[in-house]
Design a protein around this nucleic acid. Sequence first.
DNA 1: CTGAAAGCGCTAACAC
DNA 2: GTGTTAGCGCTTTCAG
Lengths: 348, 348
Amino acid sequence: MSVPRKKDAAAGPPGRLQMADIARLAGVSTATVSRALNRSPLVNDETRIRIEELARSLNYSINVGAQNLRLQQNRTIGVIVPYDSATRQHLSDPFFLSMLGSLADALTDQGFDMLVSRVDAEQLDAAAKPFDSGRVIGIILIGQWRHHDQLNQLAARNVPIVVWGVQLPRQLYCTIGGDNVAGGRLATEHLIAGGRRHIAFFGDVRLPEVAQRYEGYAMALAQHGLAPAPEFQISTSFLPQGGTEAVQEMTRRGLDCDAIFACSDLLAITSIHALRERGLRIPQDIAVVGYDDIELAAYCDPPLTTVRQPIQAAGHRLVAALLALIEGQPSPSQQLDTELVCRASSAV
Amino acid sequence: MSVPRKKDAAAGPPGRLQMADIARLAGVSTATVSRALNRSPLVNDETRIRIEELARSLNYSINVGAQNLRLQQNRTIGVIVPYDSATRQHLSDPFFLSMLGSLADALTDQGFDMLVSRVDAEQLDAAAKPFDSGRVIGIILIGQWRHHDQLNQLAARNVPIVVWGVQLPRQLYCTIGGDNVAGGRLATEHLIAGGRRHIAFFGDVRLPEVAQRYEGYAMALAQHGLAPAPEFQISTSFLPQGGTEAVQEMTRRGLDCDAIFACSDLLAITSIHALRERGLRIPQDIAVVGYDDIELAAYCDPPLTTVRQPIQAAGHRLVAALLALIEGQPSPSQQLDTELVCRASSAV
DNA sequence: CTGAAAGCGCTAACAC
DNA sequence: GTGTTAGCGCTTTCAG
């Protein structure tokens, strides 16, 4: 019956301090220690202080696992960043990483712990594992990708989940995201206002977020009597080599354009690099607008005109939406305002 | 005695499935379910398969908290990113974020979960809380800052901890870090080889990592008969505005320099921006070398010459070192090789 | 105000 | 092969 003292390499160190030890040293029962450390008014102040100091001096902290089990509670949220199984891509896009940072801040503020996992984007149902196993009480997923159906399934079985992405038809889960149509429109109108007429679109339109940005792009063009030509849409990944590939494709198609709207800053920056290698001047020959407004967008050269996604606000909204969901409240999808930040890469 | 079904907002949803439910539905005891789901050879294959399928169809997963409690085990590692209490700075430096991504990858590979916390750098002893409370079995700290003594205290009380940083005298904890002296030297020698003679150093030398890079810088200068003048060392933070501030200070001091060695890429990139605003050309008037080789270093303009820190390797080493420590093995501090990546920002 | 004892969900002797 | 049962570290009712 006895529980093994040390199971495997991953076991805790031997004699770990526990409540019974504090109780013995303080000459009281564990019940009193528990009450004291939880600041129950039932316990005598003097006793409480004695116990608190004893615990502090021994660096004793209540075992959260046991406490959670007994209390049927848990203050851990799972944050999941899917990865592309094909490329086994490392977690490197500055935008995703910033979002992770923002969530860390927002969750810390609310007194929640953050458990970070990566899951294969093709097996998104695995995202619910930490929930099913009681490790976390809810999940924030950074990156909707093309897995609408799998996400709907998770929501259908009542996994509390909030996704950074766009709202789609027949959607059962809650998304928080930027207003991508408006964002695409802002970027494109800005380029048109700068006198550009042949605007290429860089981004994989199979992704819902990108599709909506394209929609905004097409709307803006149409409004100015410019038809969006399909050959001006160049699909490319969000990987660091995306810009180079897109510019290659542009050249291959013999496209004659005077502006590019790139669907992420990483893409915009790497594209600018590839364009310059071809001897093109930014913005004189080609204006470039990015998306996200990552930290470095302001400092690259030329400073990048881009559509800002409010990352800090996003973190707070995602957390707030998830907590509402967990409390059983409705948590409708939200769109956050985006804003055009004009810098030199698109100067007239 | 009865345990409350729902304690507060942070409680799990009501009727959560548990092993007893599966046992009842399968017509066996919980012991058999436990054995089946843990693939014990003791259980009949046919029974096992039936139970596995039942569990899968109901999305049941063993409650990890209860399992850990019973097994005295835990496969969660804490990753802590200290923040500066003065600025309450958000988690935004691309280097730290990349390291977080790398650790997420390394820990996932090893089957460990990653619990991310932020703690006030002035209260680093709080970093041990998740360990003391049994949430994690070890801690990886990204950022040594100036808290050598606090880290020593943690190590002295046997908190398994590995720190990204440099090895210092009388150090009780394990650090993994780049070879900062060599890195500083590489950068400086490269600039000297390019004919630069008045090389400014941007970075807060109170931080051990920066101090070692400065040491390498001074060594390289001395070797070429150039004395490192104190006014060429400009202290500045790792915040995004660091570059601007450093360049201002440079101007204020009336420094006439032909090169800058900046202690992070973020600093280098923002410095280049500030220099250009003053009409200086990079690299013709001033060559710039950064540190870290973050993703964007290759794509900024001009592409940044920088000292590469092997982030992916660092993640794996940090994890391996911590696991060794946890298993009671000695885990000596390590220095990882750094490498100079030459790009246009320092071209001759 | 404090202690004894039950039980959170799970696993592993030990019996059969 | 499978069931019974004790107990991981904690909280809380109930009795004093």
